[in-house]
Design a binder for these strands. Structure first.
Lengths: 217, 217
DNA sequence: GTCTATAAAGGGATAGAC
DNA sequence: GTCTATCCCTTTATAGAC
């Protein structure tokens, strides 16, 4: 799986940039990402990838040795790009726990329910039995990383005396889990549209439950 | 999807029992269930199903009109069989909320983490984009049904004055979601072994959080 | 490096004998 | 109803020209 991180033709001779964002390689990945995440691994043919990339199949195979390699590349990249979009978070002093958690909860749940996020989850869940390392690396980069970040928030709220949280990591898990709840299940199982009102309600319920459960004193 | 509930050859002429548990039909389903749930829909060939069932492909197609029909049958059956195993539940008067919820939580989480349950979830998540009805029927028979059942428990605990639960369905969702949490994610994404200690800890944390959040008075 | 054309294999589904 | 043998299509992957 680690060889999927290298281009097959970049052994030692190429003057070509390895990360050229406008090269054929990037062009292929961009097109393939949409197809794989929308249709899954099995239902997406290399023919379709070639057509969508405006490249012939021979060129496609010149860049990626096999369908598996291409898929691994895409999942890895989707994984890494994930949290960049959630960076602008209030990282400093916390005003009120309720305000803070509601803001974070909203962003987090909306991120969970984004089509790309759902598609990435779906892909990883589908393929992980056949490639366990993919599952593990995704879990660590995604859910695990997010949980640790959230645990930091709870630790700060505890230090500020706003919440009595004995185990920040456990609280972070509970917060994320309640946030997802039935909404996430419905979204990843069916293709139902989730309304804004449902999201707001889920966030509010989650925050209130956490506040009551971890109220100080 | 409803025609998948009937055998193609049992229109009106057959002396054969429709539910014969030893017939070829049951034999096929038994073998196919293992293959589909282990390998997923796309990776499981009808050849493999025929081999594993000790039946020819022609016979296989005499019983099931297509691969999709067979798969739908299996998911439906797995769904329905689900709750039978959890029937022996304390349905009467509730002693202590903590004891009761801990007992239920333990059974529920162990059920979630069973290989067959995980495989069923995985299959439905994978295939639902291509067959939405499958996803919807699974959700209603599985998670939705379980949530409503759990809401009944919370309603009884409220009526008994043990908990102050304004919205039993929401509490049931939170209970189930926290129960699953990171453990379920790890299990369905990777093939990690989850220890008994982790299960116990998750159940305890969930129950304590619910008890604190919904404490009366 | 990139294309067109094709090889090679596998899988879903069926025809026809018994 | 059940089997053997086969059709036909899709898909992965490559050969050879430019």
């Amino acid at each position: 799986m680690s060889e999927t991180l290298h281009r097959p033709a970049a052994e030692d001779a190429g003057p070509k940039l390895p990360d050229d964002p406008h090269g054929k390689r990037a062009q292929i990945i961009a097109a393939a990402t949409g197809l794989f995440l929308a249709g899954g691994f099995a239902a997406t043919s290399m023919d379709a990838v070639a057509r969508a990339s405006n490249v012939s199949k021979a060129t496609l195979y010149a860049y990626f040795a096999s369908k598996e390699v291409l898929f691994g590349e895409i999942v890895g990249q989707t994984c890494r790009a994930k949290w960049d979009l959630d960076e602008p978070m209030p990282a400093d002093a916390t005003p009120h726990a309720r305000t803070h958690l509601t803001l974070i909860g909203n962003r987090l749940l909306r991120f969970f329910l984004r089509p790309e996020t759902l598609a990435a989850f779906r892909s990883v869940i589908t393929e992980s039995p056949r490639s366990p390392e993919l599952g593990r690396s995704f879990y660590q980069a995604g859910p695990q990383g997010g949980m640790e970040w959230m645990a930091g928030i709870f630790a700060r709220l505890r230090d500020a005396g706003e919440l009595a949280v004995p185990d920040p990591l456990a609280a972070a898990d509970q917060f994320g889990a309640m946030l997802r709840g039935a909404l996430f299940l419905r979204a990843i199982i069916g293709q139902e549209t989730i309304t804004d009102a449902e999201i707001e309600a889920a966030v509010t319920r989650t925050v209130e439950t956490i506040l009551r459960a971890y109220a100080p004193g």
